[in-house]
Computed example of a mutant assay.
Amino acid sequence: MNPIYEKLKLDRSIPVPLYYQIKTFICSHIQDGSLTDGEAVPTEEELCTLLDVSRPTVRQAFSELVHEGYLNRIRSKGTYITHPKINSDFIQKIQNYNQETKGLGLVPDTKVLSLRTLPAVEEVARQLSLSEKDPVICLERLRYADGKPMVYVKTFLPEALCSAVLTEDLEQNSLYETLEARLNIRIGHLTRQIQAALADEYLAKLLGVAKDSAILYIVTVAYTEEGIPFEYSLASYRGDTYRMSVELHRER
């Protein structure tokens, strides 16, 4: 148990509910960094004993913190510190990661894990309208926001169309901006599919989450203004951090 909880003293002489005092204490120490992402919180039983309160009191504090995004419950494993989810409109806008992240008031960063050429497997070839074993560029990146790993993305590009990216610094430069500036490739439209998934051991380590944590898995195919597919990307977003928003308007 983090010793910070020893400082939690409940004031029974004021009209503020005990559960709310617990909730406020935990929330304030998440915000000031005393309690960090991924850190386990004490069990309900431990806090009941420490604070001499009933289990429903602690449970209500935890429930509200989970609902507000400050705690994450993982079945059979425990309850962990997190932060409120980033409310992204990524699925309804054409923009690069840096634009998306800056638009949310966060500082983006990128680490290139791998950049290589390899023969296209069946699914990659189909999505990019290529023949199997045609050369494609495979780019693997880990994207950050405010220093925290958020997204792992694997991107495939036709080498014949996009070979210039092999010599670019894609940690400092946007892929989309590079393609437009160097190759005059402009996005005409794209398709995105979203599904729920679980983090395997490799992905969990990259994103700093527990194995089998929830992931938002997004498949993107981007097309040029001429309708030629030039990007096939597989992105894994942290499910404890991201939520996707869509705004719909009724037809008139």
Rank of each mutant, 00 (worst) to 15 (best):
S233V: 11
Q92K: 02
I228A: 05
E177I: 07
T79S: 07
N72K: 09
K93S: 15
T224V: 05
L207A: 00
S233C: 06
A125Q: 06
Q99R: 11
D109K: 09
L207H: 00
Y80H: 01
D169E: 03
R73Q: 05
R126H: 10
F90A: 11
D212F: 01
Y70L: 04
E6T: 14
S63W: 09
T36P: 02
I185L: 13
D89L: 03
D37Q: 06
A199R: 00
G33R: 04
H249D: 12
P229Q: 08
P135E: 15
R55P: 02
S174P: 08
Q92S: 13
R141W: 04
N87S: 12
V246A: 11
R55S: 10
E123L: 12
N173W: 03
L47H: 03
Y20S: 04
G78I: 03
P15K: 03
G69V: 08
E64R: 12
P229Y: 08
N87Q: 13
E226P: 10
Q195K: 14
A40F: 04
P17D: 02
V107I: 12
Q127I: 11
L234G: 09
S174C: 11
D89M: 05
V53N: 15
V219H: 07
V58G: 00
I194H: 03
I81M: 03
S129E: 11
E6Q: 15
Q60K: 15
Y242F: 07
I194W: 01
T24K: 06
V209R: 09
D146M: 02
G105N: 14
M150K: 03
D109F: 02
E123I: 12
N2Y: 02
I26N: 13
I4R: 05
T36F: 11
L130S: 10
A197W: 02
T57A: 00
T82M: 01
L139E: 01
D52I: 04
Q193N: 13
E140G: 05
T43G: 10
T220C: 03
S129Y: 14
L203S: 00
A181N: 07
P84K: 02
K211D: 13
R243D: 13
K85V: 14
P3G: 09
K93V: 15
R238Y: 08
K23P: 04
S129V: 05
N2F: 02
A120D: 06
